[in-house]
Design a protein around this nucleic acid. Structure first.
Lengths: 330, 330
DNA sequence: ATGAAAGCGCTAACAT
DNA sequence: ATGTTAGCGCTTTCAT
């Protein structure tokens, strides 16, 4: 049906080897032949067959991104960065998203299938023993999770938690609570640790709420529930640092429904700096999501070229973004 | 390096054909042999080589989505729908996103490369003569754009514009403006037509603003500029229907910066119903983005199975979502 | 400078 | 029930 190098070879009266050479820009071809083959290929509308090329070259030109849940602005932002960087490379991008983090392994297995992608970007998925086995032999770059055996790009979550809490302390808030996640993934644990450290330095006691929202805790619903719990407390906190912006959005809803508002009744600081955060004036700790995705891809591409380099652990420093929701009490 | 069917064949003392049969579940294999081959394959940790399989089968198991710009919540939502449906199929998903709509053809060409994907989902990209040529022979489903030669999933934009405008009229607003896009793509033109129809029925005159934001008009910046222009008018409108939520967000910012607010000083209705719309209380015309993506994939998969069916043009009816930004003047 | 031929790893007739 | 073999479309030695 469609034109192959055999057709071109016949038409140009050369062998398929010569056609292949010309098409791949080998210098070992006579000028006249080269021109003729090019002309014929052009005229016949030749297009290389990606699959056949890949099989012969033993390389697919594909990288894949494995994402725990797409219904999450954090991942969406990272994905944008990934896509941008991939578009600037010679690779094409396969996207594997799970319905929730617990089902990520199925997608991961597909992404890792032999002869599929050359490398994979794995997001927010801790490398346990089973996964280490799966990943064995593949070129992998980790995002939002670190592991000594792989390149990784993470944010200093503990610092982020500290910055947020310190900011609330500085603004004079007295009873600063924290909303975390159950079950608590490592990033959340680290954010909480930063919160606790800041409080400890100030000689305050932590107050932690979290609702058990399986399978995915970084959600509006989880934030809503946790805030509801906080509001039911006999002595209501006057500020809260929340483990993610998504939860913070839910928490703000709960606040609003209770006839309260931030920062007047309770100051709120989130984490991530997703786009809505700016729109609603939510103070937050910013992760450079776009850049994380971009750099991870660049690293993956580099590693594909040089698999020997020792793994690097890139830790971004998050930055505090102060908006209306944590304004100092007047 | 990695184990092939030859290794298994040798180990199980059968031919590669038998191995292939067993692995593909052919019934024409003796029970004992089947069991033995399975055991060996398992033990050796065999994984089929996607590429080789694809080349032999002449089918890749890949579909691709071509997106004009990823920095846009509308496309993100559609992409989620696409991903959800793809995950339920036997296909894997390639994502090709352009930096802006004018550069979509490069990505489209990659997506269409012979031996890459079996079908492509093309978003918001009108099929002109050049593209028709490109798409010729490929299995394509169109989203947000219609063309008689292909399956397409679109929304009744004109109806949407009508609904929005009619709603504003009903709520008693007097001077209802419209913010469109320059250059004006077909969906925007249709939305404007709906707006004009509603106004004409009410015997009012249209008032249209739009800023020239190349290459992509459905943006916050564009909305901001257009609203600024409206505010500079001697007689300020008291309501506005805006061609997209993204622009509406920018318009709301402009309003706020001018010390004004919606709906008090000007009622605002957007289009799309992206997630932030709900958060900021923006009235809007909802497109079923997730479902559009999902159904488009299902259609693509169906067409891949039966290429003879005549193209279908699926037109969704948008729905009006009333929130605070267009509340009736008290 | 060019051609012949051996793969790449698998599927699918066609034989037996 | 199983094996032999010819592709799938291309790249890449190895000859000439």
């Amino acid at each position: 049906m469609s034109v192959t190098i055999y057709d071109i070879a016949a038409e140009a009266e050369v062998s398929i080897a010569t056609v292949s050479r010309v098409l791949n820009g080998s210098p070992r071809v006579a000028k006249a032949t080269r021109a003729r083959v090019h002309r014929v290929a052009e005229r016949m509308g030749y297009q290389p067959h990606a699959l056949a090329q890949s099989l012969a070259r033993q390389t697919t030109g594909l990288v894949s991104a494995v994402i725990p849940v797409l219904t999450n602005d954090f991942y969406m932002e990272v994905l944008r960065g990934i896509q941008d960087a991939v578009a600037q490379s010679d690779f094409d991008l396969l996207v594997y998203a799970a319905s929730d983090p617990e089902h990520v392994d199925g997608q991961l297995a597909r992404a890792l299938q032999r002869g599929r992608a050359e490398g994979v970007l794995l997001l927010s998925t801790p490398v346990d023993a089973a996964r280490r086995e799966l990943l064995n032999g593949s070129t992998v770059v980790l995002l939002d999770v670190a592991d000594a055996a792989f390149d990784s790009f993470t944010v200093d979550n503990s610092l982020g938690g500290y910055l947020a809490t310190h900011h609330l302390l500085e603004n004079g808030f007295q009873r600063i609570a924290h909303i975390s996640v159950v079950p608590e993934p490592l990033p959340a644990r680290e954010r909480r640790a930063g919160y606790e450290r800041a409080l400890a330095e100030a000689g305050r006691t932590p107050l932690i709420a979290a609702s058990d929202q399986r399978p995915y805790g970084f959600s509006e619903a989880a934030g809503y529930e946790a805030m509801t719990a906080l509001l039911a407390l006999p002595e209501r906190p006057d500020a809260v640092f929340i483990a993610s912006d998504a939860q913070a959005l839910g928490a703000l809803s709960a606040l609003r429904e209770a006839g309260l508002s931030a920062p007047h009744d309770m100051a709120v600081v989130g984490f991530d700096d997703i786009k809505v955060a700016e729109v609603v004036g939510l103070s937050t700790v910013r992760q450079p999501m776009h850049e994380m995705g971009r750099l991870a891809v660049e690293r993956l591409v580099a590693r594909l070229a040089d698999s020997q380099a020792p793994p690097i652990q890139h830790v971004f420093s998050p930055t505090l973004v102060v908006r209306a929701s944590s304004a100092r009490r007047v």
